[in-house]
């Protein structure tokens, strides 16, 4: 197997909560709190979780768009954490972000030509850009006269196509897509999903696909990481997820998704409560206050990610008995990082 395109080890992103602009921090939001995973070239890693679980921050951390508190992010073998902005810039070409809101992420005063040319200009690649632009319109199914028009002249679906065109203009290797479908209608979502699949096939893209919609994530992803309060609680091959999920939170998420079939048996497991604040996460396993299977141990200790099958690991003591050998376990789970209590960042 070739080296992974992305390697993340014990990644933490903590945001200070201040009173006033310059006040001393009153506390820290542990948006991402000790995360380990790899992304192989050409695969799609889906990241799911509810609001506040840290999935968007994780995506931005991969692209060095937020300050990393602790840990390591390697892109194609090169460490990104601590790299000066000047050294990051050439790498930026190779990794791009697609935003959720196609209405807010495109400058309303720029024509589509300006929007799509900008990446070429920034990276000093203006020569030959014109031909690339026409190619992009074609690939993305945008009308030929789109270049001279402004974002407001397009529908939501077309705007998201423009956002994707901007992201792939410089032929990046990695595309982080943060909820790219949630502002779109169902029939348009399916068009964009098909487009993302085609682009990946034709250009060998690697995706990190962040979404709250489990159905779409399962459909698009090779593997899926389920996040809860800043941590990955389960990482599994997408095809195993709906049948083989082990973490009680993953199971609850799956059973909470409304199924578009009125004859589907109503065995919905309704989880009590709501995700707690990432400012003061509960001790032990962060999920224990909502967990139907929590034991005394879950209140005290935080479970590491136990590998239970090839490419499948679960951060739950229930899976401890099925964990693969302990040497494998520590190498896959990234050592003690997952267990470590967050230190105050400085």
């Amino acid at each position: 197997m070739t080296a992974p395109l992305i390697q993340v080890r014990d990644l933490k992103v903590h945001f200070p909560v201040r009173r006033g602009l310059l006040g001393r921090p009153r506390g820290w939001v542990r948006a991402v709190d000790g995360v380990d995973f790899d992304v192989a070239r050409g695969e799609t890693l889906g990241v799911v979780g509810e609001s506040g679980c840290g999935k968007s921050t994780l995506g931005r951390a991969l692209l060095q768009l937020v300050d990393i508190t602790h840990g390591s992010v390697r892109f194609d073998g090169q460490e990104l954490v601590g790299l000066s902005p000047r050294r990051v810039r050439p790498l930026r070409r190779r990794m791009q972000l697609v935003f959720q809101d196609p209405f807010a992420s495109l400058n309303p005063r720029m024509t589509v030509r300006d929007i799509l040319s900008e990446p070429f200009v920034i990276h000093g690649l203006s020569r030959g850009a014109e031909r690339e632009l026409h190619g992009l319109l074609d690939v993305l199914g945008l009308p030929k006269d789109a270049l001279e028009r402004f974002p407001h002249e397009f529908s939501g679906g077309q705007r998201q196509r423009i956002g994707i065109a901007r992201a792939i203009a410089l032929r990046p290797e990695l595309v982080v897509a943060d909820e790219p479908l949630s502002a779109l209608d169902v029939s348009i979502q399916a068009q964009i999903v098909n487009l993302l699949v085609e682009l990946q096939r034709d250009r060998g893209l690697t995706y990190v696909f962040i979404a709250h919609d489990l159905k779409v994530v399962e459909y698009l992803s090779t593997r899926v990481a389920v996040m809860y309060l800043g941590r990955i609680v389960e990482l599994a091959p997408a095809r195993r997820l709906s049948q083989g999920a082990r973490h009680p939170y993953t199971r609850a998420l799956l059973s909470a998704v409304p199924v578009p079939d009125p004859t589907h048996p109503r065995t919905r497991q309704v989880l009590p409560g709501e995700p707690p604040s990432p400012m003061s996460p509960p001790g032990g396993c962060a999920f224990h206050p909502r967990c139907p299977q929590a034991t005394e141990r879950c209140r005290r200790e935080s479970p590491p990610l136990y590998p239970v099958a090839s490419g499948h690991s679960v951060a739950c003591f229930l899976a401890e008995g099925d964990a693969l050998g302990s040497t494998q376990a520590s190498s896959l789970a990234g050592g003690s990082g997952v267990l470590a209590q967050p230190s105050s960042p400085g």
Binding site: V186, S187, I188, A190, V197, K215, R239, P260
Partner: peptide
């Protein structure tokens, strides 16, 4: 509309290498 929803079955029918069945989107807008 019903066909546009990615179903668990459609996802399982594809291979891990990404050869998923295309979603049958409604064309146009």
């Amino acid at each position: 509309l019903l066909r546009s929803i990615p179903s668990w079955d459609a996802a399982r029918g594809g291979s891990a290498e990404g050869a998923r069945p295309r979603l049958r989107a409604i064309p146009g807008m």
